[in-house]
Amino acid sequence: MSDAPVIRADEPGSFPHGVLAARHPALIRTVLDAFPYGPDQRRALDALLTSATEGVMEPLGTEDDERWAAWGAREYLGRSWFEAPFLWSESYFYRHLLEAVGYFGPGAWQGIDPFRPFKLAELDSPETDGELAALDRLTEQPAEEQARALLHGSLWGNRADLGFRLSTPGATTPVSRLVVDDSASLWSLLPVDTICLVADNAGRELIPDLLLLDHLLHHGRARRAVLHVKVYPYYISDAMTADVLDAVRRLAGAQGAAADAGERLWAALADGRLEVRAHPFSCAPLPYADMPDDLRAEFAAADLTIFKGDLNYRRLVGDRLYSPTTRFADTTDWFPGPVAVLRTLKSDVIVGIDAATEAALVAAEGQRWRTSGTHALIQVGVK
């Protein structure tokens, strides 16, 4: 167990405090505007708005209370949202939001994803059209160059065009924004029989993840892929099975190389070479070090597991204020197999960078580099 302090949101002016005090209230208002919710849902959302900013954490009032009790609810109920660990408060907020809109039912709103309009808007955006069109140029490059570009596309998420265009003559590679680059180590682990990818966001960010998996399968760098998604809407844009299907349909309905990839992904889903998994622990307010035995066994059975995105990084290494020079291997040595991370930095947690890099970043930006989303890393841990 690390002695680095757990991140909390009780310091005004800190990044976590801003998420709870400003981002969460804004999200409630956005969800209210996105759906014609009835009086019951609107009252529940208004109550959550007040509770999240001025009140204390309260029970869910559903059968899910038992699960959340096992995840630590008894310790934090009745306390300010700002006093609990940041990861726990964030997760509990989203679970309360889903209850407020009737996601878990019973009722007409059961199973209606409150974030779906935002996900679909990204898939249907002109930016997505441009990124998919870039795939046609990418297929003209050697397979190694394609792989490198698709890896960077997945890394940068909704700035995926930066990755897809890396192989375009004259393109500018954002290497100065990579604070750690273990990509050579990642490629050295391939080919494998089974690769797992723990997805982050849906919409525009899920497309490059799927394209990366398609490339690995199509070029024989993996015989089989397992894509882990959330079991229900978690945070504003996290991917679920429905989002995977939306993204594959978006690809298949495009033209050129994007359509080819979509058709291959559809076939891979149908014949089992690509499997989608949604484990209940995917929505837990806990680090992956606390995962149950059945999920641990799934990761142990894979030859390589890639965790995508900022939230998964926080859950993999622990949501703590480490010294940035803490070794990545020291925070992931419990993981039951080779593990890699593709992450754009959007929170305070960071490990595995050298002292000179940290000093240069702090001199140039203060601590903003940790949370601005303008820097990224590729980290690999092998026992």
Rank of each mutant, 00 (worst) to 15 (best):
M1N: 08
S2V: 01
V6H: 06
I7L: 12
R8E: 09
D10H: 07
E11N: 08
P16C: 03
V19Q: 03
A21Q: 07
A22C: 14
P25K: 08
L27H: 01
R29T: 12
L32S: 02
D33W: 00
P36E: 15
R42D: 01
R43N: 08
A44D: 07
L45E: 08
D46L: 13
A47N: 07
T53I: 05
G55P: 06
M57C: 09
E58C: 10
W68D: 14
W71A: 03
R74M: 11
Y76R: 10
S80N: 06
F82G: 06
A84E: 00
F86W: 13
S89C: 00
S91D: 01
R95I: 05
H96A: 07
G105R: 06
G111D: 12
G111R: 12
P114G: 03
F118Q: 13
K119Q: 06
L120P: 03
L120D: 01
T128P: 00
E131N: 06
L132V: 10
L135Y: 00
L135S: 01
L135I: 01
D136R: 05
L138R: 04
E140R: 14
P142D: 14
P142E: 13
Q146V: 13
A149L: 11
S154A: 15
W156I: 01
G157S: 07
N158L: 09
N158E: 03
R159I: 01
L166H: 03
S167R: 05
T168G: 05
G170W: 12
P174I: 08
V175Y: 10
V180K: 03
V180I: 12
V180H: 02
A184P: 00
D193I: 04
L206K: 06
I207Q: 00
L210Y: 03
L213W: 03
L213Y: 03
L213S: 09
L217D: 07
L217T: 10
H218D: 15
A222V: 13
H228Q: 12
Y232E: 14
P233G: 06
D238K: 07
M240S: 03
D243W: 03
V244C: 10
V244Y: 09
V248N: 02
A257K: 02
A258C: 09
A259T: 09
D271I: 03
D271R: 11
G272L: 04
G272Q: 06
L274A: 11
R277V: 14
H279L: 11
C283I: 11
A284Q: 13
P287W: 02
Y288N: 06
A289Q: 12
D290K: 05
D290E: 13
D293Q: 12
L295M: 15
R296Q: 11
L304C: 10
F307S: 00
K308P: 07
D310E: 13
G318K: 06
S323A: 15
S323M: 09
S323E: 15
P324A: 09
P324H: 02
P324V: 08
P324Q: 02
T325P: 09
T325E: 14
T326Y: 04
T326R: 10
F328G: 00
T331C: 13
T331Q: 03
T332V: 15
T332Q: 04
T332M: 09
P336L: 11
V341K: 02
L342V: 04
L342R: 01
S347G: 13
V351H: 04
A355N: 09
E358T: 08
A364T: 04
A364E: 13
Q367R: 12
R370K: 15
T371D: 07
G373P: 01
T374I: 00
T374A: 13
L377D: 14
I378L: 02
